[in-house]
Design a protein around this nucleic acid. Structure first.
Lengths: 338, 338
DNA sequence: TTGTATGCGTTATCAA
DNA sequence: TTGATAACGCATACAA
């Protein structure tokens, strides 16, 4: 194995001290042109690149952005993470994505501290958390020292963080208005409970549904947010004695499961389904899911700005930014027929 | 900010030397029960966890598995990465997922070396690469020193690595037999070219199609593998003078795009579509995509075994393991009607 | 402008 | 069995 060249190797090849090499790779000024070129040439010859983590160990600040994805299975999480990574890269800021790991224990779901801790050991200059985590405890001691932005959920237990999410009340008002306009009067809400977004969104639905004069029932998916849980809960909802003619789902994944449940109905029956997130799948012709667009790029832009501009973050610290959602109407929200 | 406790803090609280604390956290034996308990108690009180990267710096070996995901947009990549992470965690092995970043340059697509380099700086004990990368250069100097496993593609430029992928020839033979059994005789292949899996899979299709006596045409998606490229290429294919009655797609994402193109046909016309990967989306009732199942869990199990068992890896070094695929027949592969 | 010394949190080596 | 010391690759204060 060819060992990776270090600052030491470059220094000895260029015939200078290690400090000088460090200087060349840090600042623009403070080193003479002649030496700078010698160092750069030596570095190029050896193929040297700085070891960012060794430097982090020493300086306690690398300036990179740590990105934590709550769940790889939800496309909107990976899309946001990926877009953030690209946006930051365009600004010349490096980011590192880590995925959270949820452990199923007898006491319920717990956040595995290890992957998080490992990312934090890397000493990120700021942190972006995408999606809801069972537990924000590992970050509580950090919120004073680095900017933390939480996207797609609110960070109630992290008062020093900034959260950016779409306005659920506005979204649910649009959805219920849309459905009642289509003639629906009995609607089921299919979604989980337990964490902030989950409960907030459901309550937002319930208020909006009441305002629109809809009869509604909530069928829980437990703590799950995937299509399997959606399929199961929707199947239950469709078997209720007071049959809902529309199902409003917590997110797209659950809605896809609900669509499955509708497709399997015997005898066939048309039931409207709506989602939340506008993942790319919702736009497929065969899916055509009416859903709420969270304005991904706006969320990402805002998040990246806060993550890289300390003053902007301080000004926003502790606030919960709401982004205006848009209802994307597609074929899944069918008109009521009888 | 409360600083994270270090080995130093634990040592002074327990009234022992740092070396002893390190020993306690390293091995089971070699330290007296009395001291071990004192150290453990102190560590618990302070909430100490070792800083893995500082230890990597010194020991040159952390034992963790680095996982590189080629593309977050493809569900099978994230699913494999996630399942590998869980499988390794069950074995008590920590893994860290990094996502590759592809840069669009005038010279075509290039792998951004930075994220890769950063992961390698962490000194993984072994490496899992999920999906095809434009360039395996950054790993060439590494293949002698640590086990590298490449999943879902072959590593032609990395002779020291082990690749695990499904048998494209077997899969394509099944697909073409299935389609010709349904009465199809003119089939379009929708897929990219340029990298190994891309070209291999296409050639496998062409051979199988010829063997099955099918007429076929290839409509390229360029270098793209997403649904937008699939939609576009499939639209072209459907407009050909010799109209294909079936479209075999490189992967599920492209197939979803192809399904979109079919759905938009005016006047409506039934065209069979097949995919490759059996992502969870393919199983949705409204999608019902006939596709090739790569036997995810078998691939993951095999990969994780090689990544954690040095002897097993050495025995397999340089080989390309083929996993038997299964054709999952669903509603999208319609019978030929006229 | 350049070099020396020291420390980040850890492990490895060697004595005791 | 335990402790002192050096080193990993780098950054920073300070001296030259």
């Amino acid at each position: 194995m060819t060992k990776r060249p270090t600052i030491h190797d470059v220094a000895s090849l260029a015939g200078v001290s290690k400090s000088l090499v460090a200087l060349v790779f840090k600042q623009d000024s403070g080193v003479s042109e002649a030496r700078r070129e010698r160092v750069l040439a030596a570095a190029a010859e050896l193929g040297y690149t700085p070891n960012a983590w060794a430097s982090a160990l020493r300086s306690n600040n690398t300036g990179f952005v740590g990105i934590i994805v709550a769940d790889l299975h939800n496309p909107i999480f990976t899309e946001i993470a990926d877009e953030a990574r690209q946006t930051l890269a365009a600004k010349g800021v490096f980011s590192f994505v880590a995925t959270a790991s949820i452990l199923d224990t007898p006491n319920g779901r717990v956040l595995d501290p290890a992957p998080i801790q490992h990312l934090l050991d890397l000493k990120p200059g700021s942190l972006l958390i995408v999606g809801g985590l069972p537990d924000l405890q590992p970050f509580s001691s950090l919120q004073a020292s680095i900017p933390i932005v939480v996207a797609l959920t609110s960070a109630t237990t992290l008062p020093g963080a900034v959260s950016i999410r779409s306005d659920d009340r506005a979204a649910m008002a649009e959805i219920t208005a849309h459905l009642s306009g289509l003639g629906h009067s009995t609607v089921a809400y299919i979604g989980p409970s337990g964490r902030t977004v989950m409960d907030d969104r459901r309550r937002a639905f319930e208020e909006a549904a009441a305002d629109s004069g809809l009869r509604f029932v909530w069928v829980s998916t437990g703590g799950d947010t995937d299509e399997a849980a959606g399929r199961q809960a929707a199947t239950e909802a469709l078997a209720l004695t007071v049959k809902p003619t529309a199902m409003v789902c917590f997110n797209d994944n659950i809605a896809f499961g609900a669509q499955d449940a509708v497709a399997r109905l015997q005898p066939p029956r048309q039931v409207a389904v709506t989602g939340y997130d506008n993942t790319y799948i919702a736009g497929f012709e065969r899916i055509s899911l009416t859903t709420v667009d969270q304005d991904r790029s706006h969320i990402v832009r805002q998040a990246c700005n806060l993550l890289t501009d300390a003053a902007a973050f301080e000004a926003a610290r502790g606030s919960a930014l709401l982004v205006a959602p848009t209802l994307v109407v597609r074929g899944s929200s069918v008109k009521l027929t009888n």
